[in-house]
Write a protein that binds this DNA or RNA. Structure first.
Length: 207
DNA sequence: AAATCACGCAACCGCAGTGAT
DNA sequence: TATCACTGCGGTTGCGTGATT
């Protein structure tokens, strides 16, 4: 695992030294242009590896440690709403990355919910799967997606953004529930779950 | 104490989407 | 319009480690 054997590309776990080099680069140049970052720093990693390391580990916004009950609940509900769209789900869980959410789902939550094997969006537990397959846009790739044919991805995003905004209004008058460094009052407000459920209703409206 | 197993996590891979030229 | 570089995503793999035999 140490090194690729050809002296050009390193693979496997990142060392502390590599982390420091990458962090220093981001401090100075900011995120993005990861291929250039790899060349500039002399790291024997490709741009994708640099990006992944930053996004999943080095970024100060990444929250470490166990998932809370609230996070579990949120993931389960969002997964029911969105399926395996980990980046969208992670985007609504402060400090968690898509990789973390995906791993947590596959290891813990799928068992907890009794989901057999790797979860597929076509599983009967997904809200989307309750509709006839012909009503979905289907793409054949690793990025398989099933969305209602009369709702675009942008609309779906807007629904969730709308929930977020609505939650802001509600939570502005409510006491926070959690007190962690990454606490996001919008997401943990008691009414948020109802908002997500409303979003789900919206998606199926006019079917 | 050594071997094996199971679990959790980090990282890799392949593909699609997007923007620049 | 075509091509290329880059980014982002989800599925999968494989390593590290603790538990069990």
């Amino acid at each position: 695992m140490e090194g690729a054997g050809n002296g050009e590309q390193r693979k496997g776990l990142w060392t502390v030294e590599e982390d420091i080099i990458l962090m220093d680069y981001v401090k100075v140049h900011g995120k993005g242009k990861w291929n250039r970052a790899a060349k500039f720093t002399g790291l024997k990693r490709d741009g994708k590896s640099c990006r992944l390391r930053w996004m999943n580990y080095l970024s100060p916004s990444v929250k470490r440690g166990a998932f809370s009950e609230e996070e579990d609940d949120l993931i389960i509900r969002l997964h029911k709403l969105l399926g395996n769209r980990w980046s969208l789900i992670a985007g609504r869980i402060p400090g968690r990355t898509d990789n973390q959410v995906k791993n947590h789902w596959n290891i813990h939550l799928s068992k907890k919910l009794g989901v057999k094997g790797k979860y597929k969006i076509s599983d009967s537990s997904s809200e989307f799967s309750k509709k006839p397959e012909a009503d979905f846009n289907i793409k054949s790739s690793s990025n398989d997606r099933l969305i209602p044919s009369n709702k675009t991805e942008a609309e779906l995003q807007n629904v969730l953004e709308g929930s977020h905004e609505k939650a802001k209004e509600i939570t502005s008058t409510q006491e926070p529930i959690l007190t962690s460094d990454f606490y996001d009052p919008y997401l943990y407000a008691p009414s948020l779950m109802e908002l997500l459920d409303e979003s789900l209703d919206f998606l199926w409206h006019d079917f």
